[in-house]
Design a protein around this nucleic acid. Structure first.
Lengths: 226, 226
DNA sequence: ACCTGAACACCGTTCAAGT
DNA sequence: ACCTGAACACCGTTCAAGT
């Protein structure tokens, strides 16, 4: 997108990237409600409408924030062909989960718009490569890669829905302990099977649950590829 | 929660359920942005703050809307023990998917708060029953039931993110055709594997993709149970 | 081209007052 | 107890004007 040298009026005071950075700071420090055009502008010492010089509307800012977070991913994991395909997919999934949970306020942003930025396409491309090694044909590998993305994003969104977005992520053990207390109230006479497994349900938010479900999905891929 | 017979002042003009109904109508007709306390009140001929006689805050209204939609589910499917467990889970998942997609504006609501209403607990209970038949022990069945919920809600949320929430759901074939056009633009030299499967990617939003991933997950459960 | 001041059409929520 | 009128502290976005 080469533009001619436009040299009229004052220099741009900020870059798009700086605006995205301020937006991400607001999200992490004060939660999704604080991610407003007016607060971004205020934090940068700009009039609210000056933001519209950089982005056409608020939705564009949100998409750029999503892209920024996706870009934090460790892109080496999937390409490390020394490791078997299963291990690579598990590791990249855990990596993404950790990075998204570090910005709990962002979880819904990932579900609210198509994830079709270059970073996202690169992730899909890497997944396709790993899944080809699983013995899946191209069409099945494509379906499998999307299923992995659905599972990862769905897990994170549900997990983040119980988090305070304005506070650093508590230790997993503490989060599980808190849920254990809440689940103690399930009435065993109405939901007997549920009441019998409240300990496991308390751990739904944990790494172990996340990995367990992902492994079952990968088992299914492996069986299909054989 | 039995309350004493309070008989002072005028009768309640509406019920909680009527308010939830109006909220759902606004959501379906004008999208999530129209789901505001003030618009609900206006549509009922009330002053905006009168709503706070029925619900403590907007979040409570949103939770009630979610509960209403979950309640639309066909509760017989999971209990029909004539059918094998796999078929029951696939059928209930497709049923839920269809009902949620009928309210595209609601998709994010399901990811934005813990789904712990009685209807949701009943769903979990039914899943646990079906998964016990898969040969999973109680702890694994609990993990599996949550994985299914993650997969279903994640699929619907990602699928709904591309829908116009103010318009009835177009036919699946039309939605896939539109995506096919969009994906034609993926640069093959940068993302060769992706470009080779754009036809499948266009169908990510479809029933076939949904079922394929779910079946792989269930394959994984079955292998674990054996 | 970039930015400001002012305005428009909204929000969710609270408070005091009326019946 | 239920409801209204008025207000508070916000939104996203647009428009005309200044440099």
């Amino acid at each position: 997108m080469a533009e001619g040298p436009r040299r009229r009026g004052p220099e741009r005071a900020f870059t798009d990237e700086q605006i995205v950075g301020v937006a991400l700071d607001l999200l992490d420090e004060h939660g999704p409600d604080a991610l407003s055009v007016r607060r971004i502008a205020a934090k940068m010492g700009l009039a609210p409408n000056a933001i519209y010089t950089y982005f056409p509307d608020k939705q564009a800012i949100l998409r750029a924030v999503v892209d920024r977070i996706v870009g934090e991913r460790d892109t080496q994991i999937l390409n490390d062909t020394d490791a078997p395909w299963r291990e690579r997919i598990v590791r990249v999934s855990l990596d993404i989960r950790t990075r998204l949970l570090a910005h709990p306020g962002s979880a819904l942003l990932f579900m609210s718009a198509p994830i079709d930025g270059p970073n996202s396409l690169a992730l899909g491309e890497g997944l396709l490569g790993a899944l080809a090694e699983a013995g899946l044909d191209a069409a099945d590998a494509a379906r499998a890669s999307y299923a992995v993305i659905v599972y990862v994003l769905g897990s994170v969104a549900l997990e983040a829905s119980e988090l305070d977005p304005t506070v650093p992520l508590p230790a997993e053990a503490d989060r599980i302990a808190e849920r254990r207390g809440a689940f103690a109230a399930v009435p065993a006479e109405w939901f007997p099977r549920t009441a019998a497994v409240t300990d496991v349900m308390a751990a739904y938010i944990g790494t172990e649950q996340f990995t367990w479900g992902l492994e079952r999905l990968l088992d299914g891929f492996a069986a299909r590829g054989r």
